[in-house]
């Protein structure tokens, strides 16, 4: 196994570095070589498609073009936002050949396939993953939080059970954890307003927190750096006392931990809400 395209995106190169570190560590354990796309550019995120249609298309298409030049056919985009933008533009490239032309690219860019972290873990490597589990997460109640962009819209992501996805739950179960059933798994956290419209992120964040708390979750598990920033950094601002705060853990951190990797390698020390308590429980 070798040569999976890797598109870390801006967040994983910055504030979400623990997602990047834990993902690389897990890939290493699974024997998957991640090949970072040379000279990748920002996907444009919400801002680009909000105000400039063409910029949104060209940014993501340029990264796909760079992946193709590097001989890659599949690109793992761990950030939910990056994944969704690449997937939307790959879809758009099928209908609109003008985009490739504008970039002086030969047709066929749409054949570069963006992979979400869920698709990668569930379809490609779940058997290898199971074999590597050395530390069971027995007893850990996990609220699997998909947010919006990991699964929606189904025409782009190809996920059929968009209202009640179970891919993350399957992985958590495989690690010995106990996924809870809760109501906010695919509700938006409002992260694109983190800087510009704080009322939204605090309200949505609080609702998400309350829903997880009510069903007795010990931790959140997620795969989106914006959701993470929102939920991990702002629980205090949401009015949740420190002792009631829930750790917010990346799926790859959870997997890495189950594989026996240590907290520092996985960047578990970088969180605002301390994570140690959650993992202590699992030993008892």
């Amino acid at each position: 196994m070798s040569g999976l395209g890797y598109y870390p995106g801006c967040s994983l190169s910055g504030s979400a570095s623990e997602y990047d570190r834990s993902l690389r560590a897990v890939a290493g354990q699974l024997g998957v070589e991640l090949r970072e796309i040379p000279e990748w550019v920002c996907c444009g995120a919400t801002s680009a498609h909000a105000i400039d249609h063409n910029a949104a298309l060209c940014l993501a298409a340029d990264t796909l073009a760079k992946a193709r030049r590097a001989g890659l056919t599949e690109v793992l985009a761990p950030c939910a936002m990056c994944y969704q933008r690449l997937a939307v533009v790959a879809h758009e490239l099928k209908q609109n050949p003008g985009i490739a032309t504008a970039l002086d690219e030969a047709p066929g860019l749409e054949n570069i396939k963006p992979l979400s972290v869920l698709a990668w873990l569930n379809n490609g490597v779940s058997d290898a993953l199971q074999a590597k589990v050395t530390r069971s997460l027995t007893g850990l109640k996990v609220a699997c939080y998909y947010g919006c962009l990991l699964v929606r819209p189904p025409k782009i992501t190809g996920i059929q059970q968009v209202e009640a996805p179970r891919q993350m739950e399957q992985l958590v179960t495989l690690l010995g954890g106990q996924p809870v059933r809760w109501s906010m798994a695919t509700e938006c956290c409002g992260a694109s307003f983190a800087l510009s419209q704080k009322s939204t992120v605090l309200r949505q964040g609080r609702q998400i927190y309350d829903a997880a708390r009510k069903v007795g979750a010990d931790v959140f598990c997620l795969a989106c750096p914006m959701c993470h920033a929102n939920l991990d950094m702002r629980q205090g601002e949401m009015g949740i006392p420190a002792e009631a705060q829930l750790p917010v853990i990346y799926l790859t951190q959870l997997i890495g931990w189950a594989m026996g990797l240590d907290a520092t390698t996985l960047g578990l020390d970088k969180h605002f809400v301390p994570t140690a308590g959650a993992f202590a429980k699992e030993k008892s």
């Binding site: 209202e163 059933r181 109501s183 906010m184 829903a211 009510k214 069903v215």
Partner: peptide, 10 residues
């Protein structure tokens, strides 16, 4: 959408 909020249907 209809969801369960801690046993309460919403």
């Amino acid at each position: 959408r209809i969801y369960r909020d801690n046993g309460q249907l919403v």
